[in-house]
Design a protein around this nucleic acid. Structure first.
Lengths: 184, 184
DNA sequence: GCGCCATGCGTACGAGCGTACATATGATGT
DNA sequence: ACATCATATGTACGCTCGTACGCATGGCGC
């Protein structure tokens, strides 16, 4: 009756990590509201009991998932801006980051907005959000003064959000135009 | 045993409207995730059965609540921008709108972000979001060209969002600076 | 080689949920 | 005055959820 073969799962080091990854995937697909122990366990192909063994609560899973997501997005941000030799290159890096986020993955945007909502009522996640925003601000401040960094950061957020929710998303040229206009 | 007096509730015209208002309050306070038939009924002080009588499903309640919220925010937007006699006045109106939104009510921002998340997985709410964005774009286009309107709209969104989530919210002067910088 | 215990597993429980539905009631047209 | 029926109410059902917990198992120190 058991159609799908069961892999031997004893001694599965790193299972906790895989569970966090599975949680990220579930949040992206079904939203925080649709993220349950059972759903995560199914996504990671582990039994339900494994969740309560590795995590004290569902909130703990969410916190780790969002922390990992934020950190990996910030890594890309840091890396690309760090590689820019001068201000002009930094501007190009920002444009490319925004355009990639937009065209590449609505996936990441959904996770981000889900995080914002969750953070509104969960202090731990609020801290995650703020740490993330701090990192991106600091990355921008390598090339721009503090005021400019903050304004640019806000513009980026708005561009990504509006583009993703709009029927008629902004083109890379429009993104470029907006960013150059603020920085001109 | 029944400590709280029960108002006579028969023949309560406009109850449906009050329920939608109660739903808005509950969403703002507890989030979409914490919004249930029972919670809304409690907030409006009506029995649970009243919910299923007035609404076919919980989704219907959410849709009406978000529609009303979006429409009332857009009304303010329209009104203030419509009253501006020239471009300079329109810029001031935008600055004041952003600063009021920020300083006045985190309440509205929470509702907005909740709407974005809900819209990501609910086509009806996506339509509500897009109609709303369309209205604010059109309001801006009374005073700015289409490209400027779109860029300004995005900047506004980012400023409000970042300010609200930041430990150190932007001051009205900083808001003014950012907006003037884009439009300069 | 072997026992111990960290790790993995299955199941059960109580709570809260959306929704259905049978019944009660009073405003309204006559 | 009264019958009607839209409106209002209380309760119950079936489901999914988070979490607890007792049992199984096999890697590792001895």
């Amino acid at each position: 009756m058991n159609g799908t073969a069961r892999r031997p799962r004893r001694h599965d080091p790193g299972r906790r990590d895989r569970l966090v990854d599975a949680a990220i995937a579930v949040i992206a697909e079904r939203g925080v509201a649709g993220t349950t122990h059972r759903e995560i366990a199914r996504a990671a192909d582990v039994p339900l009991g494994s969740m309560t063994y590795h995590f004290a609560s569902l909130d703990e899973v969410l916190a780790e998932a969002f922390t990992r997501h934020a950190s990996s997005v910030a890594d890309v941000f840091d890396e690309r801006l760090g590689a820019a030799p001068d201000r002009d290159a930094a501007v190009e890096a920002v444009i490319s980051l925004v355009a990639d986020d937009l065209l590449g993955s609505a996936h990441d945007l959904v996770l981000t907005v889900e995080l914002y909502v969750a953070a509104a009522r969960n202090p731990a996640l609020k801290a995650v959000t703020q740490a993330w925003m701090g990192r991106s601000r600091r990355a921008l401040e390598r090339h721009f003064d503090a005021t400019t960094a903050r304004e640019l950061d806000a513009l980026i957020e708005g561009l990504v959000l509006h583009s993703a929710l709009s029927t008629d998303p902004m083109t890379p040229e429009q993104i470029r135009h907006a960013i150059h206009r603020l920085l001109r």
